[in-house]
């Protein structure tokens, strides 16, 4: 049940690579469909979710936690959709949304800017406009990653492999990724499947709580759900009701604990 995420800039051939990898390995493929599914599930328009996962937060959004809420919705949906494995995700921020999962092969595809400009111009744009659009898009993604996750998306350390489509062709990159997917480190183990299930539970709990309690942290280990909240939050009837309903709906929760007065651990979602 390997999971492959392919991160790319616009017109970097990442889509073509993802489609060919999925076809060659017989895997499913996922990109913007994720936003439709998350939108249906949480009753949010797809455009709003798309904006939340692409554009850097504006001044007002920094205080209203809207990005945090929408990202929690997208993340919960993504983890559910990839939990069965054998899937290639080439949508936005896959490597960051799935960063807590082991056995995920994280690939970044980059390409020469001139080739990307030529690709963009095929849509009928002038060279100047095409270049400006590509640079603006890259800038938004960089700001988004910096603001939300405090990382630079161009940092190679975020990925397992970075492949430049220039000297290496799309087919070479596909061969390379397929070969890497068979590496032991990316083969799912029982531990990996369990961690995936745990993360899915934690993300779903967070998605339910985030709108009213944006600073809550959730961890799930072996089916034990630990929720980190402030004293004030944990004693509200709304909080208790959400937690009770969630526990009733998810039979795989072994134990639920609410911790108050503790700082949220770094590995919490």
């Amino acid at each position: 049940m390997a999971i492959i995420t392919i991160s790319r800039g616009s017109f970097s051939m990442g889509k073509a690579v993802a489609e060919k990898v999925a076809a060659k390995l017989g895997y499913g493929i996922l990109s913007r469909d994720l936003l439709f599914k998350a939108g249906d599930r949480f009753h949010v328009p797809k455009k709003t979710l798309e904006k939340a996962i692409h554009d850097a937060p504006g001044i007002f959004e920094r205080y209203s936690h809207t990005k945090k809420i929408f990202i929690a919705y997208i993340r919960a949906t993504l983890i559910e959709m990839v939990a069965d494995g054998d899937i290639v995700y080439y949508g936005l921020a896959g490597h960051l949304l799935l960063d807590k999962l082991p056995c995920v092969l994280k690939i970044r595809i980059i390409a020469n800017l001139e080739d990307r400009v030529a690709g963009r111009m095929a849509g009928g744009l002038s060279e100047q406009k095409a270049r400006a659009m590509l640079l603006a898009d890259a800038d938004q993604r960089r700001k988004w990653a910096k603001k939300i996750y405090n990382v630079d998306p161009n940092d190679a350390a975020l990925y397992d492999m970075v492949i430049c489509i220039d000297k290496l062709s799309i087919d070479d990159a596909v061969d390379f990724i397929c070969q890497s997917a068979s590496i032991k480190a990316f083969k799912p183990t029982n531990d990996c499947i369990r961690q995936c299930r745990d993360l899915s539970l934690a993300c779903n709990a967070k998605a339910l709580l985030v709108e009213d309690f944006p600073d809550v942290g959730v961890i799930c280990e072996n089916g034990n759900l630990l929720v980190y909240a402030t004293e004030k939050e944990a004693h509200t009837s709304k909080f208790k009701k959400i937690m009770e309903t969630f526990q009733k709906e998810n039979y795989d929760i072994y134990n639920l604990e609410v911790h108050t007065g503790l700082s949220v651990p770094a590995n919490a979602v």
């Binding site: 980059i110 397992d160 492949i163 430049c164 590496i183 480190a185």
Partner: peptide, 27 residues
């Protein structure tokens, strides 16, 4: 450290040296 300088960047945190050798030899 700019990835744009290279044709490929391999992160050896998960990939073992022997696997990297195998992959690069094939490439």
């Amino acid at each position: 450290a700019d990835p744009g300088l290279y044709d490929m960047v391999i992160n050896l945190d998960q990939v073992q040296t022997d696997e990297a050798v195998e992959t690069l030899s094939t490439t």
